Amino acid sequence: MGFGSYDESEQDNQEYDADLDDDTGVSTEENSHEGSVDFEIGASNDELLDRLKDIKDDENEA
């Protein structure tokens, strides 16, 4: 056999364990988390909109 070849007869001898009824899986609720996230932006909407306008103006000049 050369590099990368395989014996096709071996494909018939493969065993697959596809027992889906076993209990070896992970419970999706095992690591559930509850909480909240708060953001402090530190700038007003007008300041953010002015900054966005400046960025867009810089892109148009380039």
Rank of each mutant, 00 (worst) to 15 (best):
S27H: 10
G35L: 06
G25S: 12
G4K: 12
A62N: 14
D46A: 12
D19Q: 12
D58V: 03
E47Y: 02
D38C: 04
S9L: 09
L48E: 01
D46S: 09
G35Q: 08
T28H: 07
I55P: 00
E59Q: 09
E15F: 09
E29Y: 06
A62D: 14
D50F: 02
D57L: 07
E40F: 08
D57Y: 01
M1H: 05
E59H: 06
T28M: 08
E15H: 08
D46K: 09
E34H: 11
G2I: 01
G35P: 01
A18C: 11
D22M: 04
D21M: 10
D58I: 02
E30Q: 08
K56L: 14
G4D: 09
E59W: 03
G25Q: 09
E10Q: 08
R51W: 02
I55H: 01
D23Q: 09
D58F: 03
G35W: 03
N13H: 08
S32T: 12
E34C: 04
D21V: 03
D7G: 04
D22T: 14
T28Y: 09
L20N: 09
Y16M: 10
E59T: 01
E30L: 05
E15S: 13
N60V: 11
H33M: 10
I41T: 10
D21H: 10
K56T: 06
S36P: 00
D58H: 04
D57F: 01
Q11T: 09
V37D: 02
D12V: 02
N45A: 11
D17P: 01
H33W: 05
E29I: 02
D54I: 01
T24Q: 08
E47S: 11
A18V: 10
I41L: 11
E29A: 09
Y6W: 13
E61A: 15
V37R: 02
E47D: 15
R51T: 06
G35H: 03
T24L: 07
R51G: 03
N13V: 02
V26I: 11
L48G: 03
K53H: 11
D46Q: 12
G35R: 03
E15Q: 13
R51C: 00
L52F: 11
D17H: 13
S5D: 14
V37L: 08
E34T: 15
N60L: 12
Q14V: 15
I55L: 07
D46C: 01
S32Q: 06
E8L: 12
N31K: 06
N31A: 05
S5C: 11
A43E: 11
G42A: 03
S27N: 15
G4F: 11
N60K: 15
A62H: 10
L48C: 03
M1T: 03
G42R: 04
K56M: 10
H33Q: 14
D7M: 07
G4E: 10
E15K: 12
D50R: 13
D19P: 00
